[in-house]
Design a protein around this nucleic acid. Sequence first.
DNA 1: CGCCAGATTGACT
DNA 2: GTCAATCTGGCGG
Length: 199
Amino acid sequence: MEPLPRSFYEKEPDEVAEKLLGKLLVRLYEGRRLSGIIVETEAYYGELDPASRASRRGGLAKIMRGEAGMALVYGIHGRWLFNVVAHKSKGIGGVLIRALKPMDGLEVMMNLRGTRNVELIASGPGRLTQAMAINKWVHGKPVYIRAHGLWIEDMKGDVKVARSRRVGVTEDLPIPLRFYVEGCPYVSKVRSSRGVHPS
DNA sequence: CGCCAGATTGACT
DNA sequence: GTCAATCTGGCGG
């Protein structure tokens, strides 16, 4: 199946985040195909969004203002987080991919993660990048072509979308910007103390 | 350059 | 439930 076109990402971040649910993230790793269905995302905006790196003045903000459909890989707490730049023309924004349902290359992903528990393979932003060998190397590369071994394909079939506040951010916007597949066991488990009550 | 917060995780009491 | 390992990028000096 062909990768989703660049135009798919040229929309408001929350719309892209929601529509990415149910799509297939594919990674070529040492000649093998790793893939997983996207089951959890979060939208990030520009200066008005206190949780977004675009609200600071660094290189990440520059990329979030740049071409839509580019991979943005962000390091935090010793892990890599994978985002796709998404915004309308002249806008700023991105979508954080937070969890996958593993599909192709399960054995390889289990080895990369060091666990055989399928629900723990990619149920979190840091876990997902480890399972798919996503690192700084793909930073700034387009995900709407196959050339760099990382892309997102369309998938048929609808998913039941739920939304909530974003996870882990210290200062969130009053709007729920996290999207996930209702009842899906591959969605990251949110720590109890930080309430993610749907709102 | 050094400092340190942070879109996390997993190990431990 | 609590805690800290881990490391990049922003920011101050």
